[in-house]
Amino acid sequence: MPTLLEMPDITMLNILEKCSYKSVLTLRKVCHSLRTFVDVSCFKTDLDNICITIGPNGFSVTCQNPKPWINGTGVAKDWTSNDLKVILKMVQNSKLSSFSVNTNPDSVRGLDDLEEILRNQTRPLQTERFRMGGSKVLKILPYLDSNTLKKIYIRPTNNRDVNQNLDGIENVMELEQFKHAVRLHISCFNPHGKLLFGWP
């Protein structure tokens, strides 16, 4: 009698693409064979929106598919960078509508870990909107797909950042991601004057 593990690879991918992202993450925990298959395969998921908050004890992650009012929101706390790697690897072949990162000035290591994961992805993360809480935009923005990214939102994480300068904003302007985007929102930072005039 055939089991799921004896399915041809293409059929297995067909099944994974029809599973919700939550089911894929559960299937990954069933056995070594399935975990390896999920980790090495390229398939699209229904994951649509990822919000990562960097905290002192790890990453808090909120995930949604295109119908959160039906399928609910996935919330995970105190994730390690390995957990985060799994979910970001899973969305490599999908297009997100929104990717948000909320940084924490007291947890610089977390942002470095996230940058490392994004740098090591096979292809840049595809998202239409990118929301950054914090000033270190250059740690994330270069690793997003410039052809997909349309809107960039940057805001401070706390009152300390308000009216501070955005780090390396001149370098942001050199990025393809910046040049291709159609909308940029910067709230309560003190952006470089050149940026305002340089915006197409």
Binding site: L4, K18, S20, T26
Partner: peptide, 16 residues
Amino acid sequence: CKKVANMAQGKTPAQL
């Protein structure tokens, strides 16, 4: 495949 995918919905690894 959709039917197999639906079978996984809301289950724990042990149930799967």
